[in-house]
Amino acid sequence: KLLSSIEQACDICRLKKLKCSKEKPKCAKCLKNNWECRYSPKTKRSPLTRAHLTEVESRLERLE
């Protein structure tokens, strides 16, 4: 599967780190437990900047 097509777990399953069936409108866990089942939009991760990478590398060197 391509990364862009990976389905996201519902908010509660993601928060509780449960295996989500990803069914809509309610996944199996939410249906069974009568929880409100919501699927928040995916958040875009910002790409690493060179400055951040350099900072992490220098912190790693100090720890070694």
Rank of each mutant, 00 (worst) to 15 (best):
E57H: 07
L2P: 14
A28H: 12
T54A: 09
H52Y: 13
L15Y: 15
E64H: 10
T54I: 07
A9S: 05
K1A: 11
E55Q: 10
I6V: 09
K29I: 04
L2R: 09
P41C: 06
L63T: 01
L48N: 01
E55G: 11
K29T: 07
R50D: 06
K1Y: 14
A28T: 12
C27P: 05
R38C: 13
S46Y: 03
L3M: 11
S46I: 01
L48R: 00
A9T: 03
N34L: 13
Q8T: 08
I12W: 14
L2W: 12
S5K: 07
E57K: 03
K1T: 15
E23C: 13
T49K: 03
R45P: 03
A9Q: 06
C10T: 03
N33L: 13
E57I: 00
P47H: 04
R45Q: 08
R45A: 00
D11V: 07
W35F: 13
P41I: 06
L53S: 00
K42W: 08
D11F: 01
E61P: 02
C10R: 06
H52F: 09
E23L: 09
S4P: 10
K44M: 13
K17H: 08
C37V: 01
R59E: 03
P41K: 08
H52E: 07
I6D: 08
K44F: 08
N33P: 00
T49V: 06
V56F: 00
K42M: 12
H52R: 09
L60G: 05
D11N: 07
K16A: 02
T49G: 00
R50K: 01
V56S: 01
I6P: 10
K17F: 01
S5H: 10
T43A: 14
S4Y: 12
E7P: 09
C10W: 03
L18T: 04
T54R: 06
R38S: 14
S40T: 09
E61R: 11
K42N: 08
E61D: 13
L60D: 03
L60N: 09
D11S: 05
S40V: 07
S58V: 14
K32W: 07
N34H: 11
T49R: 02
W35T: 13
N33A: 11
N34K: 13
R14Y: 06
N33Y: 12
K16E: 02
E61Y: 11
L31M: 13
L48T: 03
S40C: 05
K24Y: 15
R14L: 05
S40E: 04
D11A: 02
P47N: 01
I6N: 10
R14Q: 05
L15M: 12
S21R: 02
L18E: 02
L18D: 00
C27Y: 02
N33G: 12
N33W: 05
A51T: 08
K22Y: 04
K22S: 03
W35S: 14
L2T: 11
L2D: 14
T43L: 13
S40N: 05
E23W: 09
R38F: 14
I12L: 09
